[in-house]
Design a protein around this nucleic acid. Structure first.
Length: 404
DNA sequence: TCTGGGGTCCTAGGACCC
DNA sequence: TCTGGGGTCCTAGGACCC
């Protein structure tokens, strides 16, 4: 049976959601109708564009560019901060609403969903009419607009929702590949970014149609395994399933921080790593997972990134064990040049702790640690505090310093 | 006041084993 | 004295997404 997949994408999600928030709190202007952006905090050196209004877009402002650059393009630009808690609330509303139309929904990001409508045709004979109904209901109920893309697979649905914005329904069905997909530049194809499109252009492959008709061997020579994706995608082929499990895979948990000032002060950096380790290991415990690999992420003042990772002897969710490893990796790999950013990543996450040393064999100290940690977790949960860090952890950083 | 943060997946190359 | 190969595990780095 031919599948029918919807891809639903909130238009300028962060900006729309902030506009709604502001209107609900007495702000007189709808920021969707003026040159505006949602941006990071420039004083904290996180000044990039996260979302833009249609007028800002017309002025050439793009997501991800520095705000100072955006201001040059548009001197009367209004900048608003992100409100992620609010975005989560809006996201939840929108996704819960969609559940009435199909049980099979895959969250793709905070503002995008795939919905598998296959087999619902006894209810909804006309999918385009249904898509319009969904789009309009969301607009009327929640006050923000969406694009709905309809395809016979996820790739085509996703490409279709991207066609013309905002507040539109588009189809990209099997018999429309040649007319709607092929004329586009290869860089429009999902998963074809800057590097790949540059390489394709060098090969004089400019449109998706040209890509579709390029000899596979020629593609494979340059793109290896990616060639298979490129070939299939150019013909609108994608056999992946809509699956709610796809979104929350939990393959890794990470956090990074751009520092207020570049610094090579190891005490300061280790202090930051301690907070970050606390955060990621708490998230790990919340998800009832155990990590086997720990990484430290560095970015120096010239924006050169590097990272180092190591396996743990046993999977753990214990902050102290993880922090010991973090410090160990840091000491071995820090290049002693001022850093702009530092971070911690946990990966190789397992459901079950491989208990080579059972809790009964663990020494008294270790048992105490685990008890303390659970207590701290429950206090933090109760009071929403993020600052309780056991003194024994701070000691790790100090001990290490003494040894040097 | 110049350039975020959180993810996934893939690849190349080294170490090690038989 | 011509320098095997397959397999596995691990790490660093990069491409891409929102």
């Amino acid at each position: 049976m031919e599948r029918i997949i919807f891809h639903i994408d909130v238009n300028n999600a962060f900006l729309s959601w902030t506009a709604i928030y502001l209107l609900e709190h007495g702000y007189k202007v709808d920021i969707r109708k003026i040159p505006s952006i949602i941006g990071g905090d420039e004083k904290e050196r996180r000044g990039v564009v996260l979302a833009k209004s249609p007028i800002a877009k017309k002025m050439g402002i793009v997501t991800g560019e520095p705000i100072f650059q955006a201001r040059k393009k548009c001197p009367n630009l209004q900048v608003f901060p992100a409100n992620r808690e609010w975005y989560q609330i809006e996201s939840r509303k929108f996704k819960d609403y969609l559940k009435q139309y199909s049980p099979n929904i895959e969250e793709f990001s905070i503002d995008e969903c795939f919905v598998d409508m296959t087999g619902t045709n006894y209810l909804y004979k006309d999918y385009v009419a249904l898509a319009h109904k969904i789009k309009d209901e969301i607009k009327n109920t929640y006050g923000f607009t969406v694009n709905v893309g309809i395809g016979n697979n996820k790739l085509c649905a996703k490409m279709a929702s991207d066609f013309e914005k905002p507040d539109k329904v588009h189809t990209l069905l099997k018999d429309e590949i040649a007319s709607k997909l092929w004329p586009l530049d290869v860089k429009e194809l999902f998963m074809v970014g800057k590097k790949t499109s540059e390489e394709l252009h060098r090969m004089n492959i400019n449109t998706i149609e040209q890509l579709a008709h390029t000899d596979y061997k020629k593609l494979e020579k340059i793109f290896k395994k990616q060639a298979e994706y490129l070939k299939n995608a150019s013909w609108g082929i994608d056999n992946s399933e809509v699956n709610e499990e796809n979104y929350h895979k939990d393959n890794s948990i990470s956090t990074t921080r751009t520092l207020k000032y570049d610094t090579d002060n190891t005490d300061k950096l280790k202090e930051c790593l301690l907070e970050q380790t606390e955060r990621v290991s708490r998230e790990l415990r919340e998800k009832k997972k155990y990590a086997s690999t720990v990484a430290v992420i560095f970015k120096d003042k010239n924006f050169n990134s590097y990272s180092a990772q190591e396996k743990l002897d046993n999977p753990t969710d214990n902050t102290k064990e993880i922090y010991k490893k973090v410090i160990n990796i840091f000491d071995k790999n820090f290049k002693k040049e001022a850093l702009r950013l530092i971070g911690v990543r946990l990966s190789d996450l397992n459901e079950i702790k491989n208990e080579q040393i059972s809790i009964f064999d663990a020494d008294i100290e270790e048992k105490k640690d685990i008890e303390i940690e659970h207590t701290i977790d429950s206090i933090n949960k109760k009071f929403g505090s993020e600052v309780i860090i056991s003194a024994s952890l701070k000691q790790i950083a100090k001990d290490k310093k003494k040894k040097q």
